[in-house]
Design a protein around this nucleic acid. Structure first.
Length: 404
DNA sequence: GCCAGTCTGTAAAGAGTCCC
DNA sequence: GGGACTCTTTACAGACTGGC
C-alpha cells in the first residue's frame, strides 16, 4: 500500500525537533492551574510508581511548570477532580473532560488491551461473588483499598486487588485517593458528577476521539509505534487508517532529511511545524524516563541521534548508564544522561553519574547544569548533593565548586 | 531471515504485619 | 519499640515464539 503522497513536504531534522520540543511546553506554565493546563496540552501523563527520585508523573510536570509541587497534581486528582487515572499511554493521568469518551472503553474492556484484564476476565464468572461483595462493601463503608479487604474483610488481598482492578477497568470504580502507593477506590457515581457517568460514546466516536488524541499527544505519527493510536490495530489496519486520514486531508506524510522512514503529522499541526520561529525553553532539563517526549524511542533515535533506554528493567550487569538514567535536554538536543537517586533520610541528592555526550561539553554549560541541578534539588527538598562520576571528569570539580 | 506478538525478569518506596 | 519481612504498585527491555 503506497501511503506517501507526491505532496510530501520535506523538513530538516532540526525543524522537526524544534516542533516536538515546542509542543511539550517546557517551563511555560505556573502554579496548580498551570499544571492543569500542561496536562491538557500533553493529553495525558504516564504514571509510574518507581520513586528513586519523584515518580515519573511529577517529573513530567516539574519540567513544564516552573513552580510545580506534587501537591498540585494530588489536588487536581483527588480534591478538584479535574483529572482521573485510566489506561491511555499505559496507566495515565487524563483531563476529566475526556472521561465520558473513555466510557466506551470502560464498558467494552475486552476489546482493548491489558493482559492483566485478559488474565482475570477468564475468572470473572468465578469472581462474580467477590465482585458483588467488593461493590457492596464500598457502597456501605466508602473508599477502600485492597489491604483493607485482606485485613478486615473476608477476601484475600491479591484477589481483592484483582477485583478492584477489574471494576476500575470497567469504570464502576474510580481511584478516590492514594496513600503511599495504596489506591483507595470508590463508586464512580459517588465521586464524579452524574453527567460524566451517563454519557457513553459509540465505538466510532471513541475511535475518532482516541486516534486524534494520540496524534496530538505524539506530535509525529509513526506506524511502527507499538502503542499506535492507543488502539489494538494490526499493521494493515494502521496503514488503512492512515490512508483514510490522508484522503480526508487530516494527516500529511512528511519527509525528514537523512531519514528513510515516513512520519506523519496532523494537518492542523503543519503550520506549527513549518514555523520554526516559535520560542522554546533554552534551559537544561532532566527529562523523566517516561516523559511524553520520549514515548517513541525509535523516533528519538531517528531525530535526535540519541539512543535512550531506561535501564531500570535491565539486569544490573547489562546497565551502561545507571538504574534510573534520565536524558538531559538542552534546547533541541539531548546532550547527555544523568542517573540520580534521592536519599530521603538525609535529604541528599546522589548523582551516581552525569555523563555528557562527546563534543557537548563547553565551559558555558557548567552554569546551565548548575542551575538545572539546583532546581532539581529544590524540587526534591534536598539540601545536599553528592556527585560520583562525570564525563568529562573535570565537570565534577566544576559543578561541586558551584554547588557546595 | 524478518517482523509481529507474547512472556518474563527486574526493581523501587512505602505501608502494614510479624516477631523478638 | 524496632528490625525484618511481605505486599503493593508499575511497564520496559530482552528473550522467545510463530507466521510469512
Amino acid at each position: 500500500m503506497q501511503l506517501e503522497s507526491t505532496s510530501s513536504k520535506e523538513f530538516s531534522k532540526e525543524a522537526v525537533r524544534h516542533f516536538l520540543v515546542f509542543k511539550q511546553g517546557f517551563l511555560q506554565k505556573k502554579g496548580k492551574n498551570g499544571a492543569y493546563d500542561a496536562l491538557r496540552q500533553l493529553e495525558c501523563i504516564q504514571i509510574d510508581p518507581i520513586s528513586v527520585v519523584h515518580p515519573n508523573h511529577h517529573l513530567v510536570l516539574h519540567n513544564r511548570v516552573v513552580d510545580y509541587k506534587p501537591s498540585h497534581l494530588e489536588e487536581l486528582l483527588y480534591k478538584d477532580r479535574v483529572a482521573f487515572e485510566y489506561w491511555c499511554n499505559e496507566k495515565s493521568i487524563i483531563p476529566i473532560e475526556d472521561f465520558p469518551k473513555f466510557r466506551y472503553r470502560m464498558k467494552n474492556p475486552s476489546q482493548f488491551h491489558s493482559p492483566f484484564y485478559e488474565r482475570i476476565k477468564a475468572q470473572s464468572k468465578e469472581l462474580h461473588k467477590e465482585i458483588k461483595y467488593v461493590l457492596s462493601e464500598i457502597k456501605k463503608h466508602g473508599p477502600l483499598s485492597s489491604g483493607e479487604f485482606e485485613q478486615k474483610r473476608k477476601i484475600e488481598g491479591k484477589l481483592a486487588t484483582k477485583v478492584l482492578n477489574l471494576l476500575w477497568d470497567c469504570g464502576d470504580l474510580v481511584i478516590h485517593h492514594v496513600e503511599g502507593n495504596r489506591r483507595y477506590f470508590d463508586l464512580t457515581e459517588r465521586v464524579l458528577p452524574s453527567n460524566m457517568n451517563e454519557e457513553v460514546a459509540s465505538r466510532e466516536e471513541y475511535e475518532q476521539f482516541i486516534i486524534h488524541k494520540y496524534m496530538k499527544a505524539y506530535g509525529l505519527v509513526d506506524i511502527r509505534d507499538w502503542r499506535f493510536s492507543w488502539l489494538p490495530l494490526k499493521i494493515p489496519q494502521r496503514k488503512a487508517m492512515i490512508k483514510r486520514m490522508i484522503e480526508a486531508d487530516k494527516l500529511c506524510p512528511i519527509k525528514i532529511e537523512d531519514i528513510k522512514h515516513t512520519y506523519y503529522v496532523l494537518k492542523e499541526n503543519l503550520s506549527l511545524l513549518e514555523n520554526s520561529d516559535t520560542a522554546i525553553n533554552e534551559s537544561i532539563l532532566f527529562i523523566a524516563p517516561l516523559d511524553n517526549l520520549l514515548w517513541n524511542r525509535k523516533m528519538i533515535s531517528d531525530l535526535f541521534d540519541f539512543d535512550y533506554a531506561w535501564e531500570v528493567y535491565k539486569v544490573p550487569e547489562k546497565r551502561i548508564y545507571g538504574y534510573y538514567v534520565m536524558p538531559i535536554l538542552y534546547g533541541t538536543n539531548f546532550i547527555g544522561r544523568i542517573d540520580p537517586k534521592l536519599d530521603r533520610q538525609n535529604r541528599k541528592m546522589i548523582i551516581h553519574s552525569l555523563l555528557l555526550e562527546e563534543k557537548c561539553f563547553g565551559e558555558n554549560l557548567v552554569d546551565e547544569l548548575v542551575a538545572a541541578l539546583q532546581r532539581f534539588l529544590s524540587f526534591h527538598e534536598a539540601s545536599k548533593i553528592e556527585i560520583n562520576k562525570t564525563s568529562p571528569k573535570k565537570l565534577k570539580r566544576a559543578l561541586m565548586r558551584e554547588l557546595s
